[in-house]
């Protein structure tokens, strides 16, 4: 039930390789997030799983069955598109029921399913409206409703929240997570937003230039990034990356230290730095400092840190929180 496996799935357009070869096993009921910068191939990978793109080579197994060549609708998957892709000429009811009609389900059964989905998603009173009469959040719900009614083995989400404003995005994030808990279905969720990835995922798949950089739970990625890329991508604000002389002292080509793992002192410390800018967020203060040979760094100070630009401070990294990387950008582990 609901396992999805990629076996060295490769995608290339002629000489242009989009995905050099991805292998991944997704367990039943898991919430997996594909994350990476734009153009990293995460959407392509999702569309390959959906059957909207071919594989150049390799295989996709769903529920243990080879689905590499199967038509999208035969894979038992539903997809929620970035633009929602609602049928603009159909009512909400028509949108939600279209897939069931295509499957030839009896009318009464369709009615019941649509009513149930609409009730869960608070869409009951909008069933006869057209998509253009709905707000962004409601359209999003219709897109989800359309995915739910087909009772799929797995859900695919392609950056579903990127068109919503910030407040609504947080709400919908919670709703999708609740839905995952209620349905227990496998979900694959694509986003470029690492905060979304960290908050929603059971496991995160970090993609970079079509390669899977690392797969792991949010905290694994946060605590033990395998590569410089993952280290720089996961966490906000970004990890400070320092190379050259200061890194050599730690037997590494590059070292990384997160802003929240730097101790601040006015008297002494490992590195001295000059404050160039302070961002006051209330609960935290982020100091952007010029740390001489270490370059520009970001430091988190708890609470309302009173800092004047130009003031001199000392920074000390927490020793067991220093990430070391070799010159190929791979993590050095003891």
């Amino acid at each position: 039930m609901g396992t999805i496996s990629l076996k060295n799935a490769r995608k290339a357009f002629g000489d242009v390789v989009i995905i050099p070869g991805a292998s991944l096993d997704i367990r039943n009921g898991e919430f997996v997030v594909f994350v990476g910068p734009s153009g990293c191939g995460k959407s392509t990978l999702l569309r390959m799983i959906a059957g909207l793109e071919d594989l150049t080579s390799g295989a996709i197994l769903i529920d243990g069955k080879d689905m590499t060549e199967a038509a999208p609708s035969k894979r038992g998957l539903s997809m929620v598109f970035q633009s929602y892709a609602l049928y603009p000429h159909m009512s909400v009811r028509g949108n939600i029921s279209f897939g069931l009609k295509m499957a030839g389900m009896p009318k009464a059964e369709i009615e019941a399913k649509v009513a149930k989905a609409a009730a869960t998603l608070n869409l009951t009173e909008y069933l006869d409206r057209k998509p253009r009469q709905l707000s962004g959040g409601q359209r999003q719900r219709v897109a989800i409703g359309r995915a739910i009614v087909r009772n799929p083995e797995g859900f695919l989400f392609d950056e579903p929240l990127s068109n919503l404003d910030a407040a609504l995005r947080v709400n919908m994030r919670l709703e999708i997570m609740q839905m995952h808990k209620d349905l227990g279905a496998t979900m694959i969720y694509v986003t470029h937003d690492q905060v979304e990835a960290m908050t929603m995922a059971d496991r995160i798949v970090v993609l970079n230039r079509g390669n899977i950089e690392q797969v792991g739970s949010p905290l694994e990625l946060y605590n033990r990034p395998d590569s410089l890329f993952v280290a720089g991508f996961i966490g906000s604000p970004k990890m400070n990356l320092i190379s050259g002389k200061p890194a050599e002292k730690f037997d590494a080509h590059t070292i990384g230290i997160r802003p929240e793992h730097l101790g601040i002192s006015l008297k002494d410390g490992t590195w001295s730095a000059k404050i160039s800018l302070a961002e006051h967020l209330g609960a935290d203060t982020f100091l952007h400092v010029d740390a001489g040979p270490c370059g520009m760094m970001t430091v988190r100070a708890a609470g309302e840190y009173d800092a004047a630009p130009g003031a001199k401070i000392f920074l000390t990294p927490e020793p067991d929180r220093i990430h070391r990387f070799d010159k190929d950008g791979r993590a050095i582990r003891k």
């Binding site: 909207l52 999208p72 997809m79 892709a85 609602l86 049928y87 295509m102 359309r146």
Partner: peptide, 23 residues
Amino acid sequence: IPGEILEASRMDGASLGKELLYV
């Protein structure tokens, strides 16, 4: 017309004929 809408109908199981006729 955004291609995603036609892809959505493909995910919904519409054949080419139905995709052209209904969507």
